[in-house]
């Protein structure tokens, strides 16, 4: 396996039992305090989920810069828009199912169309919120945010990357959606791993197929690549920024391998699979297989059980990819 050394990934990359674990929301919570120390324009707003979204760390450190709006997600983002108009940099957090789930039009008009520098943080995204069930499992949030003009969409792969991403978006001026997870997952990046908004990361180089994913589920993809090691050479890309989309990196890899698989804890329609398909159809038509939620809702269950149930663990992904037999099929490779 050709690990990309310039990314300084964790040493025991293939062993989830050795890797430390953390939840991406925790990386956000810690980084927001740090960002707020560096920039006094940063303010925090939350809708009765301060601790769940880990904004309590900021609220405790900067009580005078924190507003509790109550259970009111539409108010959350519109107040934030007003604060941005007055020169503040608002971070507003809730569960992804409710923000941007409930308040989408307010985000569209008052933040994106107005081009206000508001950071929307949606935690507990994906199936892995678990037993709360389908109402709380945001599986459409990437789709509804990435279609908005001016909006950036960031999905950090682990707690370390969530920390880096939070610091980066705090310094950027675009309206941004930051998608976070509730559950802990293996930490495979390190504090040395660079993070640049809009720059996808080739984690592992390969020649047969490109696997593109983002968020904590990406580690399952990495493990799948490892499991397939001998049979299929998989190039793994961390598309931590869904928008602006890194056309160059994705197209170059697709041209090299000639086949692409996408992986996400989200609907395959409109999500990472959708975004990759759009870009490749235009720039380098390539065979694509999308792994994720297939136009269906989730249900209650433990996070790990649900990933297994919906075929989203390393073992299922490897199995699904091995059946595709990309290794033997070089016809669709493009010359670069």
């Amino acid at each position: 396996m050709q690990i990309n050394s310039s990314l300084h990934l964790a040493e025991a990359l293939w062993d989830p039992t050795v890797l430390k674990s953390g939840a991406t929301r925790q990386g956000f919570g810690k980084a927001l305090v740090e960002a707020a120390k560096r920039d006094e324009r940063i303010v925090g707003l939350c809708a009765d989920l301060t601790e769940s979204t880990q904004m309590h760390l900021f609220a405790e450190a900067f009580p005078e810069r924190f507003a509790q709006v109550g259970v009111a997600e539409q108010n959350l983002v519109t107040v934030a828009s007003g604060m941005a108009a007055a020169g503040k940099i608002p971070f507003c957090s809730s569960y992804a199912a409710f923000s941007p789930g409930r308040n989408w039009e307010q985000i569209r008009t008052t933040i994106c169309y107005n081009d206000r520098n508001v950071k929307m943080v949606g935690s507990h995204a994906g199936l892995s919120v678990g037993p709360d069930g389908a109402t709380h499992q945001a599986l459409e949030d990437i789709a509804i945010t990435r279609v908005l003009p001016n909006m950036y969409v960031i999905v950090p792969a682990d707690v370390e990357q969530a920390y880096a991403a939070t610091l980066a978006i705090a310094q950027d001026t675009h309206p941004t959606y930051l998608r976070l997870a509730r559950e802990k997952s293996p930490i495979f990046t390190t504090s040395e791993t660079p993070f640049e908004i809009g720059k996808a990361q080739v984690l592992v180089e390969g020649t047969d197929v490109t696997l593109i994913g983002a968020g904590p589920m990406l580690y399952e993809g990495l493990r799948a690549a490892y499991l397939l090691g001998g049979k299929i050479s998989v190039e793994v890309i961390n598309l931590h920024t869904i928008k602006p989309f890194d056309v160059e990196t994705v197209v170059a890899s697709a041209r090299k391998t000639g086949a692409v698989v996408t992986l996400e804890e989200h609907q395959i329609n409109g999500g990472i699979g959708g975004a990759v398909a759009e870009v490749l159809a235009e720039h380098a038509p390539t065979k694509i297989h999308r792994i994720g939620m297939r136009d269906c809702f989730g249900e209650s269950g433990k996070a790990a059980e649900l990933w297994k149930h919906f075929g989203l663990t390393a073992e299922s992904i490897a199995q699904e990819m091995s059946v595709l037999q990309f290794a033997d099929d070089n016809d669709s490779k493009h010359s670069t």
């Binding site: 409710f98 709360d132 069930g133 389908a134 109402t135 709380h136 249900e299 209650s300 269950g301 649900l306």
Partner: peptide, 28 residues
């Protein structure tokens, strides 16, 4: 309650269980 495959979903889901009039969880 709240287990995988159960009709007794973590938040009420209308089509999972007869007798529920609507799905809820998201407030208001």
């Amino acid at each position: 309650l709240r287990q995988l495959g159960s009709r007794i979903q973590g938040h009420p889901h209308r089509s999972a269980l007869p007798g529920l009039e609507t799905t809820s969880g998201p407030l208001g």
